[in-house]
Write a protein that binds this DNA or RNA. Structure first.
Lengths: 213, 213
DNA sequence: ACCGTAACACTAACGGTTAGTTTTTAAGAA
DNA sequence: TTCTTAAAAACTAACCGTTAGTGTTACGGT
């Protein structure tokens, strides 16, 4: 089996990068809808088929940068300090991601995205996949001490927090507010676990059995 | 100006219905991807452009039935019994909707949807629009006693509950479980309101000020 | 030096969608 | 009735994202 070694991979990466850069530049210059795939391919000096061998769709060209989002989320769960409670760790990571995408430099790209229904739809769908990965990571981390349903729910809630915060007037405050809600929701789903983190110890374990699944 | 009176509207509605019926039949017979727009138009004996004057996209043909989803949600909020708390009302309606779409008769359509990425994506995007409407209804109902962020968050959570419950092995139990979480989240966001409904009176109003916005 | 194959190019098409234009048909006015 | 207006539907012809099919090149392993 060919062990990867050098030139080929570099050339491939260079082509991919050139396509992504060209695409983003053209989109920002003329608007997403006003630029066709054929325009991008021509300007990047590659064939249309080559473009599609690097990117699955036109929308994927825009979300090149945003690639590690999914991994950062799951890492925040699986790679957190031992005994650190789940929700605050998630909260911290989402805050960082929100800050990252509301930074001044990223503004034009997000204006681009918000301006195109196709891009928004693509993003939503991508986030849902992220939520599924996150749910899996959470379920694995908790090691069967929690329902799959509850894990999938918090995962979705966390993604919701990200996307609502991104749109809010004060993104950081919005994320804080939503995560206060998520913390409460998680405790309600967790009758068998100690309460800890940003919320006072309150009533944990209301004695209701988990019925689903 | 000509006041609309009868035949025209009936014929138009009939055309629309014929298109929708034909489309659904063909999709169920041959599969969504195997049926082209031109096939549907031909079988319904209309021009392609006519089809698109009735439906915005191919996917919209499938979600014809599901039309009143949005209105049922907002109605559940705005039209609930006086003094009935928000979350239980929402819970009840979502339960009804989940039951409706997991009923035996509806199974083939949902198999169709789950089988096509395009349809799933379309549905997600549609649900997000529903969540926005719901958030608006909730905000209006609460009359400024709650943050927009909190309203948008519960609205999303409710939609999440619907779509997670729909996929769960035991849909009703899953919806119950997630709504227990939502109830807790809502109380955490509601320092100024009495606790009531499906959850024991517990600690309401932890004395934390709402900071966002 | 040779072969296998990954990367890319080229042509042509498919399928959803839309613009432009024209024909039909219902609703009201003369 | 007949005429007028306008909505509904038809037809043509394309646009655009995407893919299949078919080479061609050049890198990497032997």
């Amino acid at each position: 089996m060919p062990e990867p070694s050098g030139r080929r991979e570099r050339k491939k990466a260079a082509t991919r990068q050139k396509i992504a850069d060209t695409a983003l530049r053209l989109f920002l210059e003329r608007g997403y809808d006003a630029v066709g795939i054929r325009d991008v391919a021509a300007e990047a000096d590659v064939a249309v088929t080559t473009l599609f061998s690097h990117f699955a769709s036109k929308e994927a060209l825009v979300f090149e940068q945003d690639e590690d989002f999914e991994q950062r989320l799951t890492q925040a769960v699986t790679g957190r300090a031992p005994h650190e409670p789940l929700i605050p760790a998630l909260h911290r990571e989402i805050q960082a991601l929100v800050r990252h995408c509301t930074a001044d430099g990223a503004a034009p790209i997000w204006r681009l995205i918000d301006g195109s229904p196709a891009l928004r739809e693509y993003e939503e769908s991508m986030r849902l996949r992220h939520a599924e990965s996150l749910a899996t990571a959470i379920a694995a981390d908790l090691d069967l001490s929690q329902t799959t349903t509850a894990c999938r729910a918090v995962a979705r809630f966390a993604i919701d927090a990200y996307s609502l915060a991104r749109e809010a007037a004060d993104p950081e405050a919005a994320a804080d507010e939503i995560f206060r809600m998520i913390e409460a929701a998680w405790e309600a789903a967790c009758p068998s676990r100690r309460a800890r983190g940003t919320v006072p110890p309150g009533r944990a374990g209301a004695g209701r059995a988990v019925t689903s699944r």
